[in-house]
């Protein structure tokens, strides 16, 4: 009896850390105490990220607040200075992904995580064809039939609403919006559980931005992918995110439901951010 009680108390030591529960299922992403230093600079300083299956978690903050670094850590691109990162995926449930070796990290990244960068140069091979960029993902997993590669990459490009008559053009000759669609197609080619979006529409004009956001929303509905969206654009966050985290100087200053945060910000910085919106 006492055992159960003490167990309950330990489980509730940090009851306030979790965001309001909008899902009764366990979270897909649980990252605790993420820490990253660049020299003496604390880029990310003890950030917790929890995302539930099928939800879109927004991360906002000014430039240099550490939001992109959080995303890179979640994509296992960089070494951490501390923290625990779990994905609720069969076979990986109790594994701290930061402790995997290089080969296993790549495996997790290829199969379970997709990423769209703000700068397409980071995510795409600009001189290979668009379909080749998507097919690369499938090639890494060992697909060796040309026709299958071709049809699967076309399916993925179609899902991201990329015009099929341009699948053999290299991204270097495509417009910014199309480049983002190729990145998106590449990211969702292997049906990942988690999609990371780093300012996916920054730098696009407003009408293209809207159609790319539409595509993202549709993919999220159809495929129930969990998305973590980093943006400094509150409009994008308001359109897409279910829940939002506000970051500043490597820390989370406020988090909650998107409406709640944007309509009734509590933290002085968030208030300033919301009011600064033009």
């Amino acid at each position: 009896m006492t055992d159960t009680l003490s167990h309950d108390t330990t489980a509730n030591v940090h009851p306030t850390l979790d965001a309001p529960i909008i899902n009764r299922v366990p979270p897909l992403v649980v990252a605790r105490n993420l820490t990253k230093y660049y020299g003496s600079i604390k880029a990310v300083d003890g950030v917790d990220v929890v995302a539930y299956p099928g939800e879109i978690l927004g991360i906002v903050g000014e430039s240099g607040s550490g939001k992109s670094t959080v995303l890179r850590l979640l994509n296992l691109e960089e070494a951490t200075n501390g923290g625990v990162y779990n994905l609720q995926i069969s076979g990986l449930t109790n594994t701290n992904l930061f402790e995997l070796d290089r080969f296993d990290k790549r495996d997790v990244r290829v199969h379970h995580i997709g990423i769209v960068y703000q700068n397409p140069h980071l995510g795409l091979r600009m001189r290979y064809s668009a379909s080749g960029n998507v097919a690369e993902r499938l090639l890494i997993t060992g697909e060796r039939t040309f026709r299958t590669l071709r049809s699967k990459s076309n399916d993925s490009l179609l899902a991201s609403e990329f015009p099929l008559d341009r699948v053999d053009d290299p991204p270097s000759v495509l417009s910014g919006g199309m480049q983002q669609r190729v990145q998106l197609a590449k990211a969702i080619a292997l049906q990942p559980e988690l999609l990371l979006l780093d300012e996916p529409t920054t730098g696009l004009d407003v009408s293209i931005q809207a159609t790319v956001l539409d595509t993202l929303k549709r993919i999220q509905r159809l495929r129930t992918i969990t998305m973590i969206l980093v943006s400094h654009d509150l409009g994008v966050i308001r359109t897409l995110a279910d829940r939002v985290m506000v970051m500043r100087n490597g820390r989370v200053v406020e988090q909650g439901l998107t409406d709640q945060i944007l309509e009734d910000p509590q933290d002085p910085y968030t208030q300033q951010l919301v009011h600064a919106k033009l």
């Binding site: 290089r102 091979r125 080749g132 097919a135 690369e136 060796r144 040309f146 590669l149």
Partner: peptide
């Protein structure tokens, strides 16, 4: 050399894929 160590030859296959496409 890291790619060799991991037997990560996806990019070699991608070159062949591009040749077939073009």
């Amino acid at each position: 050399r890291i790619l060799h160590a991991d037997a990560d030859y996806g990019q070699m296959w991608l070159v062949l894929y591009e040749q077939l496409v073009r």
